[in-house]
Design a protein around this nucleic acid. Structure first.
Lengths: 220, 220
DNA sequence: TAAAATTTTTAGATTTACCTAAAAATTAAA
DNA sequence: TTTAATTTTTAGGTAAATCTAAAAATTTTA
């Protein structure tokens, strides 16, 4: 069983490992909001417990054991987010911090019953996939909106940026999960994208377009 | 803002203070499952923070500030218990430990929304009253089953013992919240009580009768 | 490839919540 | 009311997770 703090490290390493094979001390420190020296200490501890592979100065990666523990936390986090949005009417930009606390509640039957209560959801309010109790993710085919060509269309099924500011912005534009969109133009000047959604023409910046995930149903 | 541990101390002191005016170090130690020396340390800290009144060797009591913090934790605990039983189908004897963790989640809007989602319940699955967000309890008039006389009747509205063993026992006897009962006999020999509930004659020990709370609707 | 910059680690402290053992105060018993 | 028993506190220490400052390793740059 891991401590609250150990769980946070595992989760952060898990997410960082999605970008780079082996994860750097500084990157972890930034995420955890702590100093690199503290990270080194904790990494040693996790390595001793067999949760990470660690070579001095070379960064860390999760062992199978560590990965499975991390996925379990991700599962809890995302299920709680669904609960907060679907049942308690939180907005999708308000749930992260609370879920960050709830994810550490230790009770297997709590999570299984919650999962059932929510109808075994496959993704959280931001479109991120929820692993099942064995840690298996349903395969999903996402493409970034920025990578679509003029004429392509699809459905918004996720975001790759979870800041409250970004989510509020999307909400204001009416770009929420499930919305159908079609690319109508791409501006040469700044790379901003013109899209058609709910019969409205919307212009979104390149930066925004990068973080909207589309499940494509048009030609690519 | 209090730490997880401080919150536990406040809660325990609050409950112990229901029995004795001023609470003893040893009593707290037993509840928290720690040593008296540790309790003394923590009490000093709580006293410095203005959460308890403390005179060396004379025991502690909660200040208004401490009491209000404690009631807030009790409120969260009981609301989560309702959630677990009503929504996730936990049994009333299974919820305590999980609620013990959930009660420390810090988010005002979470609890307010949870309260609303649950329909502003007035009592938890054991019949204990749930304070409102201002810390006010609805007045309830309980009498212990053991104090009823032959012929008296009433409704089971609470229990004053929360051990899993006790609750399971009541469940097996069919004595759950809301059940109507009538006293039909009291055995001289061992003080056990004969009651009529759902057209069945049930004999319960004096010990069990002490911990069943009745809202009376018969003559007393 | 040597110097500079960056990243990571070590060493030694700090804080929180514990602990044990012994001393002090209080309460109960003879 | 003195002794004995109990309760509570003090003193000094430990473990977890953090910190700062300085040293060591790695990477980048010139």
């Amino acid at each position: 069983m891991q401590s609250f703090t150990e769980e946070n490290y595992l989760k952060v390493i898990y997410h960082l490992a999605e970008k780079t094979e082996t994860v750097q001390t500084n990157a972890i420190a930034e995420q955890i909001q702590t100093k690199p020296a503290s990270v080194t200490d904790m990494i040693k501890k996790l390595a001793e417990k067999g949760l990470v592979d660690y070579i001095k100065y070379q960064g860390v990666s999760l062992t199978e054991k560590g990965k499975s523990a991390a996925i379990d936390i991700v599962r809890k986090h995302r299920l709680w987010e669904v609960f907060l949005v679907d049942k308690l009417n939180f907005k999708w930009d308000e749930v992260h911090d609370v879920a960050e606390e709830l994810e550490h509640i230790k009770s297997v039957s709590l999570i299984e019953r919650l999962d059932e209560f929510l109808g075994f959801p496959k993704s959280d309010p931001h479109g991120d996939p929820i692993p099942d109790k064995h840690g298996r993710f349903a395969k999903t085919q996402f493409i970034k909106l920025i990578d679509l060509k003029i004429g392509d269309s699809g459905t918004i099924t996720g975001v790759s940026q979870h800041s409250s500011a970004f989510l509020k912005h999307l909400e204001k534009l009416g770009l929420t999960l499930g919305k159908q969109i079609q690319i109508t133009d791409v501006t040469d000047f700044d790379g901003s994208v013109e899209i058609l959604s709910s019969d409205k023409q919307i212009n979104i910046s390149r930066e925004v377009a990068k973080h909207i995930l589309i499940s494509s149903n048009g030609k690519i």
